[in-house]
Computed example of a mutant assay.
Amino acid sequence: MAAAVATAIGASSAAYAVQQGTPGDALLIPYVVTAGAGRLNTMISVVAVSPANVNVGQFNTLTGTKTAESCNGRLHWFFFDKESNEVADNTFAVTCNDWVGLDFGTIVEDPARPIPSALNVPGYMVITDNAAGDTTGSGMILYGAAYQIRGNWATQAYIPVVPLVDSADGTVGDEVDHVGAFVANVNPVKAGMALASGQGQRAVFSLRYYLKADAPAGDTEFVLWFPDNNAARVNQNILVYDADERAISATTNVPYELNVIGVGADAKEGRLITATIRDGLSETGFVAFGVADGVGPANAPTSRAGVAFSLIGVNGGNGDQTQTELAHERGVQ
């Protein structure tokens, strides 16, 4: 299912900053990709917990009734491409206090039931209670972690996993929109990075880069996930800073729900890279974004949130090691 525009889901409260390590009714993994196990892959860890072991009322990303029965069942994963078109989905069994690992490369290249349409496709994943739907909220308490693996475990980079509220569709604060057995839209308002919600607003944040040519050499990609596709983010103005506070203005394109930006003077768009930043770069610094893509009028804003982070490769002579750095959020202005 395509989710081309943001809806009012989650509109009752505003995001403050990306939450990590907290539970959700459902989970958003904002960047999932595989070129096959042993080449480029994503590993996902999911823990389903009994309410007897969690102070449920403490967390604003848990809703509804959680019981020892509701945490036994099946989880449903949905993989979407950069434009939020569903590519694949499936379910798997969980029990209370269970851990399940998902090896996306192995799933995609399963010789019994391969999914070639998901190979070399940058996308994102939503995991929720298989029992959740239009009129039923998730009964699960889920924790998650994810890692991007390059080569044969040559390096692994942490991918942030964002908890989601998945109550019945149309209820206040719901962040997962279902259409029958499928997920149509997600908007991580409570646990994501706040974005512009109405006209005249802009979300300001910065992302670090490291591009040193000699040892330890560096390379950088930016990952930006939004709850919608939006042409307002074409020719997005940015400020590229070096390490000495000097800024040069430039542009990039981030119109998709998932945007993977190659950063470097020789960066090129390709199947896994959706845009580039080539101008004004130094050995190291940061890029400042001011994204004015609010979808609601000034007097009736629609709360929205996303996720952004850098994947910074550092080669110290023993192979490239990729590190993850979350965006530095400066607020909606």
Score class of each variant (00 low, 15 high):
residue 122 P to E: 05
residue 80 F to V: 05
residue 204 V to G: 09
residue 314 V to F: 12
residue 62 L to K: 12
residue 26 A to D: 10
residue 298 A to C: 01
residue 129 D to I: 00
residue 102 L to K: 06
residue 129 D to N: 02
residue 63 T to V: 00
residue 32 V to D: 01
residue 23 P to R: 00
residue 302 T to W: 03
residue 204 V to H: 06
residue 324 T to S: 09
residue 221 E to R: 15
residue 304 R to S: 12
residue 150 R to N: 11
residue 42 T to G: 11
residue 47 V to P: 06
residue 261 I to W: 09
residue 326 L to D: 01
residue 316 G to Q: 03
residue 286 F to K: 13
residue 194 A to D: 12
residue 74 R to D: 01
residue 210 Y to W: 11
residue 72 N to P: 03
residue 113 R to D: 08
residue 48 A to E: 07
residue 124 Y to G: 10
residue 3 A to R: 13
residue 176 V to S: 03
residue 53 N to E: 15
residue 237 N to P: 07
residue 218 G to P: 01
residue 113 R to E: 04
residue 173 G to E: 12
residue 123 G to D: 05
residue 330 R to H: 14
residue 277 I to H: 03
residue 138 S to P: 15
residue 255 P to T: 02
residue 210 Y to S: 06
residue 67 T to D: 08
residue 176 V to F: 10
residue 249 S to Q: 13
residue 48 A to C: 14
residue 125 M to P: 14
residue 231 A to Y: 02
residue 220 T to M: 11
residue 150 R to C: 05
residue 78 F to V: 00
residue 208 R to D: 09
residue 293 D to I: 08
residue 163 P to C: 07
residue 248 I to M: 13
residue 11 A to H: 06
residue 186 V to R: 09
residue 241 Y to L: 00
residue 196 A to Q: 05
residue 295 V to M: 05
residue 126 V to G: 11
residue 171 T to A: 07
residue 14 A to K: 12
residue 63 T to M: 13
residue 113 R to I: 05
